[in-house]
Computed example of a mutant assay.
Amino acid sequence: MVSSDTGGRKAAGRAFAALAIFIGLTALLFWYDPSGFYLWAKAIHVIAVIAWMAGMLYLPRLFVYHADAKIGSETSETFKVMEQRLLRLIINPAMIVTWVFGLWLAWSGFGFSGGWLHAKIALVLAMSGMHGYLSASVRRFSADQNSRPARHWRIMNEVPTVLMIVIVVLVIVKPF
């Protein structure tokens, strides 16, 4: 278990270093070409959304298998490490970057106006609520306190998918 903890700290250190480099490069991009920053911000936002969604789709799938694993088994312990790392090193940073750049784009490009944008922000808030639910579930699984069956997690796996589809349609089609 000590090697797993050490590995987790090393991974967290690498993630922190990558985030610091990312912030530094983003600041340089803005400083170097403020007028062209909008397109870079949009690209960064889309990349972050993809990373966030990948994690949001994968984490409930891990829960499906973890729910059927015997408490205290090697399999259960492996799922705990996978879930915690996925959440802390990918999903959480991706959500933060998504929100930061998304809000900046909404302000800079649209002045926070447009019915489609308001609906999108509401759905991203719902996605963030789902993120919170999954985060709390990681803690419950980690403490061997999950009370939900695998079927529940199969259903929960679909929630981010449905939200993502509606959000993408709002962004591309801008129906109102």
Rank of each mutant, 00 (worst) to 15 (best):
W52R: 00
M164L: 13
S35M: 09
A12P: 02
V162I: 11
T75W: 07
A94K: 02
I23N: 04
V171A: 15
L123M: 12
A12I: 04
V97Y: 02
E83W: 02
F110M: 14
K120W: 05
K70W: 05
A43V: 08
K80G: 11
A17Q: 01
K80C: 12
V166S: 12
S142L: 07
K174T: 04
S76L: 05
F101T: 09
H66F: 09
L170S: 10
I44L: 15
Y32Q: 15
L39H: 13
L57F: 08
L105A: 13
R139N: 13
L62T: 01
I90S: 06
V124H: 06
G24H: 03
A150L: 05
F110D: 03
T6W: 08
M156E: 09
F112L: 15
R88D: 13
M53D: 10
N146M: 13
A150F: 04
G132R: 03
N157S: 15
G111R: 01
F141D: 11
S135P: 04
A41N: 06
G111Y: 01
L86D: 10
S3K: 11
L125N: 09
I155Q: 10
D5C: 12
T6I: 12
G8V: 07
L19W: 01
H66V: 11
V162Q: 10
P149H: 05
L25M: 10
K70L: 11
V46I: 14
V64S: 04
K80W: 04
L163K: 05
K120F: 02
V171M: 12
A41E: 03
M164P: 02
D33R: 13
S135M: 13
G102M: 10
V49K: 00
W107Q: 15
A67P: 03
K10A: 03
A18V: 04
S142W: 07
S4A: 14
K42C: 05
P175C: 14
G55C: 05
F112Q: 10
G111E: 04
A11F: 03
A41F: 00
A126R: 00
V124Q: 04
W52M: 12
V168G: 05
D144S: 15
D33C: 14
W99D: 00
L105N: 07
A69M: 09
A20S: 07
A20L: 09
I167N: 02
R88I: 11
G8E: 05
G36A: 14
I172M: 11
W107A: 15
S76H: 14
K70Q: 15
W116T: 05
